[in-house]
């Protein structure tokens, strides 16, 4: 870049601040794995001894297994549905110049700026007035709502630099619209779609507030964890479970970012 020389000078105080900031971000989260291997019921220093008993206890917990399966089921359905809706939205916005699309798109993006408790409560009211019982399906509906904006934003980045002429070439060669999408568009934006699926799954998997209002008798994993937090003797188990969740989430998000960076037109951020 064309930055002046003075900007290349390393700024030591600012660097120290940045490292401190990262420590602030990561320290509390990294305490989870630290204490999860500690052989004591109370979460406190000094550390006693190394143990894996909390992990064994957690893996043997049937209620946890059920909650985990529920969360996976909701996460997979919600991410697939949200990504399909996201494909339509992102494709329409990037492929056509649409008059007055901004306020319309605003409606789709609304869940980003409405406190989730309000959406959760409002959906709960509607469902109960319509006599629909709460279940994992109602949780999925709520999660699709909050995932769609994230899906659209992720996919737009991947559709934006997409070369229109590829599709036009396929059309000239006589392919129909569905075939074009499947053979030309889909492979090119596949990393974006995968990234959207992964991010939506992560959001749904971690989401608590909507699920709290919309889940019936089947809890999702965050609801299960919230229930455990009331009992001090269950806390080490929560630490072990939390450690596993953090490890998996970090891996998935890393994968999603990496995939997004491999899209057809990903900006080369490296080294500029």
């Amino acid at each position: 870049m064309s930055a002046g020389g003075y900007m290349h000078r390393p700024n030591r105080p600012l660097m120290v601040y940045a490292i401190g900031y990262l420590a602030f971000l990561y320290m509390p989260i990294l305490l989870l794995p630290l204490f999860s291997f500690n052989d004591a019921i109370y979460i406190a220093f000094p550390l006693k001894a190394f143990t894996t008993q909390w992990y064994q206890q957690m893996f043997a917990n049937d209620a946890m297994h059920a909650a985990l399966m529920n969360s996976v089921q909701v996460g997979v359905s919600a991410s697939v549905l949200a990504t399909i809706l996201g494909i339509f939205g992102a494709k329409a916005v990037t492929r056509f110049r649409i008059k007055g699309v901004k306020p319309v798109l605003g409606v789709v993006m609304l869940p980003l700026v409405i406190p989730p408790i309000i959406m959760g409560v409002a959906l709960l009211i509607l469902l109960s007035q319509m006599g629909i019982p709460l279940s994992l399906i109602t949780v999925t509906v709520g999660h699709v709502l909050i995932c769609v904006p994230f899906s659209i934003v992720t996919l737009m980045a991947s559709f934006e630099g997409f070369d229109k002429s590829m599709e036009e070439a396929a059309a000239d060669l006589g392919d129909n619209a569905w075939w074009i999408f499947w053979r030309v568009t889909f492979p090119m934006v596949f990393p974006g779609i995968l990234a959207s699926l992964l991010l939506c799954f992560t959001i749904s998997f971690d989401e608590f507030i909507m699920a709290f209002f919309l889940a019936g008798t089947d809890p999702t994993l965050p609801i299960f964890i919230y229930g455990q937090l009331r009992f001090p003797q269950k806390l080490p188990g929560v630490l072990a479970l939390g450690t596993c969740i953090v490890a998996v989430t970090f891996t998935v998000v890393f994968l999603a970012q990496w995939l997004r960076g491999r899209g057809p037109t990903a900006p080369k951020t490296e080294g500029n």
């Binding site: 989260i29 953090v246 989430t249």
Partner: peptide, 14 residues
Amino acid sequence: WTSYLLRVFSWKVV
């Protein structure tokens, strides 16, 4: 991206 609930819980630990 990690669970919101866990981040809040970790402050309880801190």
